[in-house]
């Protein structure tokens, strides 16, 4: 299971992570080794009929439809890195500029 540099780049774009060219070879090699190691589970045959296991309650519990938000000791203005007139601010969308306006 060897991951190509192009694949690392594609995955990094999906994960919105900057990966510099210097770290690319080492990262590719480490990812390959991890993926190779975890791929050993495919050696176990006949798990097709097995239902996935997730711990926790068998069924989700519901919340009543009431306006009762969990408390917030202070508002977004206190923790947002950029906030103005009640809005969070981010740089313009760039490649996302197609968004509905």
């Amino acid at each position: 299971m060897s991951v190509t540099h192009d694949e690392v780049r594609r995955i990094a774009r999906l994960a919105e992570l900057d990966v510099s060219d210097e770290v690319l070879p080492l990262l590719g090699e480490q990812m390959s080794r991890i993926l190779e190691y975890v791929a050993q589970i495919n050696a176990v045959p006949a798990s097709e009929g097995v239902k996935p296991f997730v711990p926790g309650p068998d069924a989700v519990r519901f919340r009543a439809d009431e306006v009762k938000p969990w408390p917030l000791a202070f508002g977004p203005a206190e923790f947002a890195p950029a906030f103005r007139d009640g809005f969070f601010l981010v740089p313009k969308l760039g490649q996302f500029e197609d968004a509905d306006t």
Partner: peptide, 15 residues
């Protein structure tokens, strides 16, 4: 909601 024309060079987010 993203507002693109509220501030110059910035996108305003209302959650």
């Amino acid at each position: 909601k993203s507002l693109h024309d509220r501030f110059p060079k910035q996108t305003a987010i209302d959650l």
